[in-house]
Every structure is written in C-alpha cells, then in structure tokens.
Design a protein around this nucleic acid. Sequence first.
DNA 1: GGATAATTGAGACTGAGTTGCAACTAGGAA
DNA 2: TTCCTAGTTGCAACTCAGTCTCAATTATCC
Lengths: 174, 174
Amino acid sequence: MPAIERFAKYLSENRLKMTRERRAILADVLSVRGHFDVDDLLARLRRSGHHVSRATLYRTLPRLVESGLIHKVEMVDGQARYELMIGRHHHDHMVCLRCGTILEFESPEVERIQEDVCRRKKFVMTGHTHQIRGYCVSCAGDDRARALDSRGSNVAGRSRAGAGGARAGGRTGP
Amino acid sequence: MPAIERFAKYLSENRLKMTRERRAILADVLSVRGHFDVDDLLARLRRSGHHVSRATLYRTLPRLVESGLIHKVEMVDGQARYELMIGRHHHDHMVCLRCGTILEFESPEVERIQEDVCRRKKFVMTGHTHQIRGYCVSCAGDDRARALDSRGSNVAGRSRAGAGGARAGGRTGP
DNA sequence: GGATAATTGAGACTGAGTTGCAACTAGGAA
DNA sequence: TTCCTAGTTGCAACTCAGTCTCAATTATCC
C-alpha cells in the first residue's frame, strides 16, 4: 500500500483528519533518505514553500510513528531523530561522536538474547534502544577525537547553523 | 583503595581541589544502593544538612564519573541517572515504563557481538547504551500498561513530587 | 601566612519539546 | 451543496534538564 494511503487509513481509523499540513509533512518525510531531525524537516518544508509550524510538526511526527511509516530514534544525547521505516525491518545504530554520522546494524542474535533475558526476569519487553557510541572510520584517526565519550558528547546537530533562528516560540528573557 | 582516597587521587592528578561540597556529594553517593538522579541526590543532601547547589552537583557528577566511582546511565526518556560502580562491572538496563523500576542485566555475548559489528564497520567503539523498555512483573498484568511505548513513555521520575520546588534556578515567567 | 588558581552559589539562559487557546477546516450528516 | 462540529493549526507562553556567567570564596602550593 502506498504510504499516503496507509497514512490516510491510519488517520480515518483513528478519527483523525488528513490536513494540508500532514500531507506536506508526509511528502517531505518520504523524500528523505537516512535520518533526520525536526529542524531538518522544518527547514526543508520552509524551503519548499510549506508553512508548517513547529508545534504541528511535533504533533504530527508521533502520528507517523504510530502509523508505522517512520521510526523514532531516541538519541542518547537527547536529540530525537527519525527515519523512514517503509520496507525495512528493525535495526540499531552506531553514532559517531565527532561528525554525527549514524551507521546501522542489525543482529538477530542480540534480539534473541534480549528475549532470553526478559523471559528470565519475567519482563514484558515492548521495545529497546541499542546504541553504540564511538568514532567512524573518517573520524577515528583524528587526534581530537579522544576522551569525548562519557563526559558529554558533542554530537553534530548541536552546532547546526541557523536552527535557532527558525524557532517558532519566543523567548521570555530581555 | 577506599573511594574517598581514589577520588582524592583523581582530583590531585587533575589539579582539582577536594572541597567540602565534593566530599559531601561523594559521601552521599556512597550511601545509596541502586540508581539515583540529580534530584534524589540533592534532596538527600539537603536533608542531611549540606547545602550544595544544583550547579555544583551538575559540575561534580562528571568528575565522579571520570574518576570511575560512578556511572552515568543516559535514560532514553532524557533523564540521566547514576549508579555506584565500585566493585561492579559493566551491565545494561531494563526500564519499566509504568513504575520506573530499573532492572539490570549483563551479557558478554552482546558485548562480543558489538565488537564484531564495530570491527566489520571499522567503527571505534568508546561506549554503548542498551536499554530494554517494557513492564516489570508487577506492572505487566495491569491493563493500563498497554500501548504506552513508542508514543512518549511516561516513566516514573517525571512525576516525582517536590522536584520542582527544590530547583535552585528561578523561572522567568510571571 | 600569602598568592592564586580552582570552586562555589545564584540566577539567567538554552534548547528540545509541550500546552492553552482562539481561529480555522475536514469531512460526515442533512 | 450547505451546515455542523470535532479535530487541527499557529502562536506564544511554558516546562524541564542541564549549562553558563560572574563575583565572592577557598583549597593548596610556595
């Protein structure tokens, strides 16, 4: 089933409406390969002439997650990212602490071990997060890429230029 | 080596000072079993008559982590927790989405798989996070404990009473 | 007993995400 | 097609964990 149709189905099943904004967001999400965050998405929407507020975006993303079209990757540094899930199955991530690159890996063996552990502890698993932190090939050689872990990672994304300027909400300060 | 001595060694090696506040924090940390967060720690310190500011606590915790005495557990819901590491080795966590209970598990097999994956992708691992979300035995039977995952977990800790009142910093709003 | 570099507390600030509210709109009923 | 209404939107204020600045204080070296 095409993504738009699948989303429409999800919406109507939940008595939700297919709005112009939701259509624009879905279209944009479908056009991206790899991982993206809210600011990426918002910037792209603006560039393509759609006005969608930050609040609406934050309200729509969980709908897309629930409909199974995208997946939320809760980055350990606190910044959430998303990725298209259509035609893919579960995988986990390796995050470069220097350049922010995200690599993917999957391991049925780890999944099996998890299930074992849960069975032993009578824990009902509903999800999991497995992230490996470190340095990708291109960053590993760099001298400065040392001793950054466990003392506050400076993963790329924090330094994205212009992200703040695009914020919708105002600040209270002087 | 006793913890206090180990911390003193770490401090002097890094040209840092052993202050009254750091001593109080360490003493408190050593007295806890299980996981704790900044608010827990701050509340206990206040109760035991020590005035240590939130800022100082946030500045000291990374020192304790670097000295190897405690370990930071970056919870996927964004709230960091800590745990004493003395005499323990690496393990990962299962978090109950309903009551916030944290169970521990260790799996050398998973560690081995991780290393394999990294070797294959030429990724230099410096750390990892592996968390299983779900419901513990006592919560798993509860009807309301359904469909909470992946749409914003309401893990306990958000609802901790009095946490806000203990904050040091002021709010800007009316 | 200084000198001085590290440390502290208070509170302003940051940044991701949430919420209340009035105006707007999708889409089923008439 | 028009009407009705529950769902949606944008805005701005707010929340919350964590960081930063700065003047005053203090542990440690000499």
